[in-house]
Design a protein around this nucleic acid. Sequence first.
DNA 1: TTGTTTAATTGTACCGGTACAATTATACTT
DNA 2: AAGTATAATTGTACCGGTACAATTAAACAA
Lengths: 236, 236
Amino acid sequence: MLKYQQIANEIEQYINEQQLKQGDKLPVLEQMMSQYAVSKSTITKALELLERKGVIFQLRGSGIFVRRHNRPGYMSLFSTQGFKSSLGDRVLTSDVIDVSVLKPDALVAENLGIGVSDEVYRVERVRYVDGEVLCHEESYYVKAIVPYLNREIVADSIFDYVQSALGVTIGFSDMYLQVDRLSEVEAGNLGLQENDPTLRIETIFHLTNGKPFDYSRITYHYAHSQFVIQANGPYM
Amino acid sequence: MLKYQQIANEIEQYINEQQLKQGDKLPVLEQMMSQYAVSKSTITKALELLERKGVIFQLRGSGIFVRRHNRPGYMSLFSTQGFKSSLGDRVLTSDVIDVSVLKPDALVAENLGIGVSDEVYRVERVRYVDGEVLCHEESYYVKAIVPYLNREIVADSIFDYVQSALGVTIGFSDMYLQVDRLSEVEAGNLGLQENDPTLRIETIFHLTNGKPFDYSRITYHYAHSQFVIQANGPYM
DNA sequence: TTGTTTAATTGTACCGGTACAATTATACTT
DNA sequence: AAGTATAATTGTACCGGTACAATTAAACAA
């Protein structure tokens, strides 16, 4: 692991351990430099990472402070790798409905940047938080990149598997959000009524080299899905 | 304006002018260094800014490439300053319903980190894109920070005013998303029916020094609001 | 042709430095 | 006490450098 990542983790851990709150001040840069025995730019890089994550904010001439939202029960939309990290002590489970290999339809192929004759894995599952329905997910993985999946892998975290076993790293993703009503079938999946409100999120996940490898459509149960986004500055 | 910001703008402009598409390669770092006559770290900083904005992605050993989503009609959730920038050629207008000074209730005070006896501006408006209802907004500004507002300012962009006239700069914001049904009153505001689906977004905007200055509640018209989020890497 | 090794390309990590602007604390007025 | 100039604190912009890992291209072998 890179130095600046490691340091970022340690600082975040320190904040949690000390139970620092919104506005609390962290040690100054120079102290951190000697504390971790690295150069200024490495510390700066670690802090920048934490700033992007929404953990701290920095104020020139003043110091480095803890930033923290204080609404429990909201999931971060950006725990790109599943929701694991932002769930706290809540338990995430999945019902796997389908894992199969097939040829994508035109829309899926388009979103994955492949041809309709290239194969994809189709995964369908319903996800629960503490036993309550969170969402229904239908996702497609490019088989050339993810050559093998099974129900065990899919029941756990697909992203963990892809990263550790296959050694591919996720680069960036485009998410499309939309509010709509549920169809009859969708309502059945979520234990709701037809025409009930829902949040639909389509996401295209790309590898670091820019190639799409996963296109997923998620419909959220409106009552059990609340999201928080911590945005930074005018430039985001 | 800072060098690296300026350069970031120029590169983005270059991409637009040349109509570069997803995956197209930009000049290599070294060439950019000489092109803009700055050091490597300044170029790096500019590129990092563009990467965060979702304009490019960088691949070590390979080059710098254009990243671009291609779905028209989706607004970026992160044009923190109103939606101006992501609207393209569509026209944003507002009906101002209320601009008044009052004492906040407990909830508003809590979110703004002030007391119930401190004054706030209350602004209520309905916003339209190309004449169609986009959302209903109710927002509260800390009067100590934004000492004056009127209907003209509010009809235009409040954020532009706050930044240019008052010289305060927006630092970061926490957004809370939730899907729900509309109440009768809300439905009236948006020209919809009671119980129709909606996306509610509460946002707390902070200055660079971490102080909240604006708390807003927006309810979106489900048919006219589609959002895109361009997320970066595992660390977001 | 197809795979394999080697070399060139290219962005990133990390170092260490100077200058400076924003904030905060201090000393000094009035 | 209350404002005002002054100095100390502190993060950020920007420079220039070395080392290296990931990618790609070139050379080579089967």
